[in-house]
């Protein structure tokens, strides 16, 4: 097989670099090729919405970025530093935070243990106290097992867990799925606040209403490929939105 030469890494690494750069990401599950030559870039303080149908490859792309699928190739840079060679547990130590779909938590751990598990202290960053400040409900439930939480509370916990690692970039996989509309609205305002702190956010969603309300840019994914990318304002009501998401 003829391979393109790997892309040159960005010249300088540091605070001026984009939070996340993904180049030529390919993911295979056994014989099936799921994500093709995916390239995305998320600047600091920017929210990129990754929109596509179920099965389009959104979750797989995120798993590839986090390093949770064995059959992934390509380059991932966080703040300009390559993390491509690192296993998932090292990528997620302070670089990348992953908030999986379904508000996954550790149900047999307490709320506080769930949060402490990912904690990576950073100057002026998120701490247990700040997370509790942002989600007072979690403070009330701090010694409860996470398994007993409602769907909305669990989603707060899942996002809180992501924040505790003070990541450069936050990856959210369909955070609104299965949530009551009233909780979805709260999540939207949280994402807007996070952007202001300079965090880069990649939001994979089918719920285009929420996603396009909070996003700066939108990338459309279909059959494992990014087929279009544009500013969020342009994406609203666009033909491609109709075609891809069938609205």
């Amino acid at each position: 097989m003829i391979m393109d030469p790997p892309p040159a890494p960005p010249a300088t690494a540091g605070a001026t670099m984009p939070a996340l750069q993904v180049r030529q990401l390919d993911v295979r599950y056994g014989k099936s090729h799921v994500v093709f030559d995916l390239a995305v870039e998320v600047a600091r303080g920017e929210l990129l919405a990754l929109l596509g149908r179920n099965g389009a490859g959104k979750t797989t792309a995120i798993l590839g970025i986090v390093g949770l699928v064995p059959g992934a190739s390509g380059s991932v840079y966080v703040s300009g530093r390559s993390v491509s060679k690192l296993p998932s547990y090292r990528r997620t130590k302070g670089h990348v935070a992953y908030v999986p779909s379904g508000a996954r938590c550790f149900p047999n751990l307490t709320v506080q243990e769930n949060l402490e598990l990912t904690a990576r202290p950073a100057a002026g960053g998120w701490t247990l106290a700040r997370v509790f400040e942002r989600f007072p409900k979690l403070r009330e439930l701090r010694s409860n097992q996470a398994g007993g939480l409602s769907g909305g509370e669990r989603q707060m916990l899942a996002v809180g867990r992501g924040l505790m690692s003070n990541p450069t970039v936050l990856l959210l996989d369909e955070p609104t799925e299965g949530l009551a509309p009233v909780v979805v609205q709260g999540l939207g305002s949280l994402l807007l606040d996070l952007k202001r702190t300079g965090m880069g956010i990649l939001l994979a969603e089918q719920n285009h209403r929420l996603a396009l309300r909070v996003a700066d840019r939108a990338a459309f994914i279909e059959k494992g490929r990014i087929v279009a990318e544009m500013p969020a304002a342009e994406a609203r009501g666009s033909d491609i939105l109709h075609r891809i998401l069938g609205v």
Partner: peptide, 16 residues
């Protein structure tokens, strides 16, 4: 205990 319930999530939380 976290690994008991969700090893994949644990790996994505910075634990080997």
């Amino acid at each position: 205990r976290a690994a008991v319930s969700d090893p994949e999530l644990l790996s994505a939380s910075g634990v080997n």
